[in-house]
Design a binder for these strands. Sequence first.
DNA 1: TCAAAAGTGTTACCCTTACACCCATGG
DNA 2: CCATGGGTGTAAGGGTAACACTTTTGA
Lengths: 402, 402
Amino acid sequence: MEKKNNLSTPLQPYESQIMNSVDIIIDINNKDIMLVKRKKDPYAGLWALPGGKQEAFESLQNAVISVIRQRLNLDAYCDFSVFPNKIIFNDLGKEAELHQIRTYDSGTDPRGGNTTVFAVQLLIDKAKFLKAVKPGLNVDEIRIVNKSELPRMAFDHARFVEDYYKYLKPYRDNPKTFDAEKFEKPGVSVDIIIFTVRNNELKVLLIKRKSWPFKGMWAIPGGFVGIKEPLEEAAKRELEEETGVKNVYLEQLYTFGEPDRDPRTRVITVAYYALISSDHLKLQATTDAAEANWFSIDKLPKLAFDHNKILASALERIRNKVEYSNIAFQLLPEKFTLTELQKVYEVILGKKLDKRNFRKRVKEAITIVPLKETKMEGVHRPAQLFSFKEKGGTILKPAKKI
Amino acid sequence: MEKKNNLSTPLQPYESQIMNSVDIIIDINNKDIMLVKRKKDPYAGLWALPGGKQEAFESLQNAVISVIRQRLNLDAYCDFSVFPNKIIFNDLGKEAELHQIRTYDSGTDPRGGNTTVFAVQLLIDKAKFLKAVKPGLNVDEIRIVNKSELPRMAFDHARFVEDYYKYLKPYRDNPKTFDAEKFEKPGVSVDIIIFTVRNNELKVLLIKRKSWPFKGMWAIPGGFVGIKEPLEEAAKRELEEETGVKNVYLEQLYTFGEPDRDPRTRVITVAYYALISSDHLKLQATTDAAEANWFSIDKLPKLAFDHNKILASALERIRNKVEYSNIAFQLLPEKFTLTELQKVYEVILGKKLDKRNFRKRVKEAITIVPLKETKMEGVHRPAQLFSFKEKGGTILKPAKKI
DNA sequence: TCAAAAGTGTTACCCTTACACCCATGG
DNA sequence: CCATGGGTGTAAGGGTAACACTTTTGA
């Protein structure tokens, strides 16, 4: 980076009032943490890590020392040129390890600036330490709490502490103390195969990948599952993001988890498929350069990842399911003609059906009702419109049994 | 080291004109480093790490991306919310690891401000990389040098690199790096519902939980998926651990991922079901105090987690599937009588079947062949033994169609 | 000779499938 | 009046389901 050390250079015009700060995790016996209760806003009355501003000419380490002196009234002392990682507490007759942990940027703070978290690792009797510290500047109270029983904390301090114990501390510690139960986890995503029927073709929505891997290739839309998000919620969210449609038929298909299916990292994907009627669609047919497009299932491009396999699996499922359930109705608008319904079945099954047999079967099933309206389209007799009476049920008899 | 914060220069009129910055160690194959030759003062003509200012509202990571784009003309891309420590280089078709190394304060800069050093760890052919980069803003030339043959460098960059290799990199080399785990991921497990038929009952294997949560309750056997382990492998591994049986029929059932289904943490479980013949069983009926036991599916206890739901789902699946596939054969020994086969169907479907119809249907299907042996059991006529001719196929006609 | 399970065919009926002609409309 | 798709019924055939008696064995 460019650091101007030419001091005669005129100063920059005032741009922003960035403030950097330090926060200190005072780690006592690798078990407890010292917290201070804030006297002033923001977060007055809440517990926090001791911390403070780094002055313009101050090093980070000196900022740490200042905080310890001001907030805790402890006579901390150091000689960083000799022992860069030691802090000596004169009142306690002890020395502590000082480690820089990580720098966080203040995502939402309009003042910008970064916060660097330090850890002061101290081995000492808890009571003795509590006796030595006295609440200082803007500190109401001082407390030592167990690391697994943290109170609600100001700013992102809970996260800082969590990161420290979870990821960063073990490296600083003896490597052998690394938490063995913290094993590596795969990522979990959902992919949604979105089917619709248009122009007498079964179509599926694909999106063009914008980045490596498989940049420029078409892929099934999907995304990662939030840590507290139910799988189906995640699928619905992705579906709505892509199509703007809510309340559609959505069903889990299969979970694909080959270790190398994503070259970035291990990603297990739970595939869902959705059926939406083309009249609900926001995204209509688009140009070839578009980022998302509908593809006829018999004119599919080569897809990214194992998406061809996933899509084939979805196709098989929908073809099976259409024969013994009423999912085909999901692909139709609210009012539809029997010919339209038949077309949906034909398109999904990929073969012609007999008109009279089809109508007989459909009418035997009580799930649809004729409306008083008809639909005029083209130069021929108008068609009777129908709608669904119920969502559940099947328009077919139960499967045969052994 | 000690940094003097009482500089001889007079204080600036503004309280702070702090500028934070990032510097990037582009670590190629853990051997070489990419350097840029500075076009402008200070240090014009000297080699340096690529770096630049962190804007007031910019995160540190985004500052890194900006530098790579501006100085090296590389199409770097990232999605920190998903892969917090990955950078994707579209031009290279490669991804790199991004790690925060350390924050240095600028001892000599009157404006204060800190420099955070990042490492971009990239595995790529040197020549290919050199071909892709082009000197950008304020960069005269780009070079890749061996880490042990560094030229004289601007600012404190030589020290940054030294610290990186000497102290900081080893921690980051640990595969369980901080950033990789920053994005919280759910755990992924497999559960296996193991069915068998014995004593004319459909039974399922359950294990008694030895620890919190649900200590002492019965649960479906399962375990976590290894980071490089295919899902089905994991299921097979668990299955073999519990039963000692290999090469059994195993099928994925459904993936359960409610956020609160495991009180410990978010765990998404991919459920499988297995059908094994009771003659293969190592684990025979055991006492009530045992850690694993077979339970008749109509005498199930209340299970841990959402395992009752999972089991119900498996039962539904097996009942459906038995009607249009030959999975029932998986529950029988190699040689079996037709009555035994019929019992399996009856037990799974939970109802009596007609003997003559059943046999007619089975014999129409070509998947079984009569043996020359018979089976004598009890005081009655001996029964003809059969075996499977093929594993695939169905003993039933295809399902009816619309 | 008796109990217990193995083994064997036929029929009625329902569901599936194949098939052809008239109707309503706009141009 | 004609092209176009909407709308309707029947009959043959195949699969399903209901049903009862003989055979073989050991006690």
